[in-house]
Structures are given as structure tokens and as C-alpha cells.
Design a protein around this nucleic acid. Structure first.
Lengths: 149, 149
DNA sequence: TATATAATCAACAGATCGGTTGATTGTCAA
DNA sequence: TTGACAATCAACCGATCTGTTGATTATATA
């Protein structure tokens, strides 16, 4: 049996990028796996927003967006500051940074095939829009009862 | 309403890192959100493995692992070569690269707080183990019926 | 040929996800 | 005080997720 491995962050070092525990990675990657949540993060890249403001672009209820935000909060990707009846949300990039660290474990494998990330990022810099927005919810993970057999 | 945005890859450019469509990102991030699947990817970093070999370290059935692998295949992270009754699995890093590209959209936000990714990666280089292994399945996304109220 | 093996398919169970509507809580303002 | 508003809670529904066991398919092999 493979044992749990927590991949500790380096000694004293920067502020505090979250630890790369399995649980943290689960929550972060899961939070990123939904287009609505990614769109919310993209909005939050531009500053702070109320829940109602974040909900406005979507066709779903405010309650549904509120729960998406809670998923982001549990993943550490969003922090909420409650003042009175309003709740202002802001982006917290630490977990994204942690995810980047995890992903870059595989950079050695793609270096053979692709440009270094920096190179490709440099190439797309020119046409770079604001971070990814999204559209309708179209369930993307196929149904369990197989379709390609 | 925010419209779907596909963030096309640059002109001719490298081999073919998968497009950053919402659907692709959904599948890739979802595939990465499970510790068993991440452990399988880590194993596959070391070469090609049979399904039965990949299943061996886990406490779950071969069938369950087979379905995890199918999730990885649908995300484009694993390719299977069937020869006879055996199916050899290998890592495909294109989608991980694509995920890295998406994540690096946020690098501008973490540059203020943290080291550049390259810097931190350099720091942990010394203690770098093989990519993340995992342990038991402990559902990490909490139950819907709220706990913090 | 008969049998063991690799892998998947199929059906099921229990938990979770993502949406809904309605109620509740708490704050602001007329 | 009363009412509007921001946000969450709560219960529900249908679909999906992850595991199970048993059957099936297809290939090796004794």
C-alpha cells in the first residue's frame, strides 16, 4: 500500500503557500473543475465583488452561486469579508500557486515535447485576454453507462 | 451573460498541447482532483504499466482502478495501447501542460506574494521525491449539509 | 481443448453534486 | 417601525461519482 505523502513546503521561505497535502489538492483541483467556479475566479482577478455581483452574469440562482463560492472558500481560493449584510469576496492565489507547484512536477516530461511554459506563455502574451470566462453549464464528464465501447 | 471563451492556442506553434476549452479544463482538473488518479499519474511518470500493475498498490478492486484510468483517458492524461488481452498505459503530459498554461494566468497575482514559481521550485529541488503518491480514500469535499454556520 | 489470466462490462448501492424553491437571518434605510 | 435587500440555510430532486460483485470477452498457455 502506498502511504500518504504530504510534500512539505520548504523551510522558512515565502509567506505561506498552502501545503500540498492530498486533501488540499483534492479540494483545489475539484474547485477548478467547474466552469462557473473558474469564471468566478476570473472575475475576482479584477478586484473584490459581492456575491450578488458575482451571481449576476449567470443564469443560475444566487443560492447556487453562493454554494459555488463556498466550494472555492473551502479550497482556500476565495476569502470572504463579511461587513453587515454584505459579503465581499476576493481572490486568494496561494492554492493556485500550490497547484502550479504540483503540476510543475511534470514539467520534466513535457519539456521534451513542448516549449518551456515560459516560452509558450511568452508567445501568447500578445493575445492574452482577461482570465477565462465561461458560458453555459454543459456537463462534460460523460455518463457512466459507456458510450465508446 | 458571459459567453464561452476557448482561449485558442497560438498560431502554428508546438506539437499540440490540447486546447483550453472549458470542457477540456473540466475533465483535466476533475481527473486531477482524486488522490488515486494522481497516484496513478505519478506511477506512469516512471514508464508504462498494465492496469493490473497500476491497481496493485491500492485497496480497491481492479475494476475500480480501471474506471479511474478511464477518467484519466477521457481527460487525455493517459493513453492505452491494447495488445491482445493486456492494455499498457502511458502518461500523456499535453493536458497537464495545458492546465499549467491556464494556471499561469494567475501568476501575475501571486508574484506579489510569493517567489516566482521557478524560484520556489528551485528551492524544493533538493528534497524532491517522486511525484505525489497517495493513501486511503478519505472523501475530502465535506458534506453538503453545512458544518460551519 | 480446457483453463487461467487481463481487462472491461453491467447492474447495483450509497454518497455527493448542482440545481431548484422557500424560509430565515441580519442589516440598511424610508 | 416597517420594509427592502444581501446572503445563507434547508429540504428536495435528478444526475453523477465511486465503490462493490458477478458476468463477459479475449488472449495465453498447460
Amino acid at each position: 500500500m502506498i502511504e500518504t505523502q504530504t510534500f512539505p513546503p520548504p523551510g522558512g521561505s515565502p509567506p505561506h503557500p498552502p501545503e500540498l497535502t492530498d486533501e488540499n489538492l483534492d479540494r483545489v483541483f475539484f474547485a477548478l473543475s467547474d466552469p462557473v467556479r473558474r469564471a468566478i475566479l476570473a472575475r475576482l482577478g479584477g478586484g473584490r465583488f459581492l456575491v450578488s455581483e458575482l451571481a449576476e452574469p449567470f443564469d443560475i440562482s444566487v443560492q447556487a452561486v453562493s454554494r459555488h463560492i463556498q466550494v472555492l472558500v473551502r479550497a482556500g481560493l476565495v476569502q470572504q469579508e463579511r461587513t453587515g449584510r454584505i459579503s465581499r469576496c476576493r481572490l486568494e492565489v496561494g492554492p493556485i500557486y500550490a497547484a502550479a507547484v504540483w503540476i510543475n512536477q511534470y514539467s520534466e516530461y513535457w519539456q521534451a515535447q513542448f516549449d518551456s511554459l515560459a516560452d509558450w506563455l511568452g508567445k501568447i502574451e500578445a493575445r492574452k485576454p482577461t482570465p477565462g470566462k465561461t458560458g453555459k453549464r454543459t456537463r462534460t464528464t460523460p455518463t457512466k453507462t459507456g458510450e465508446e465501447r
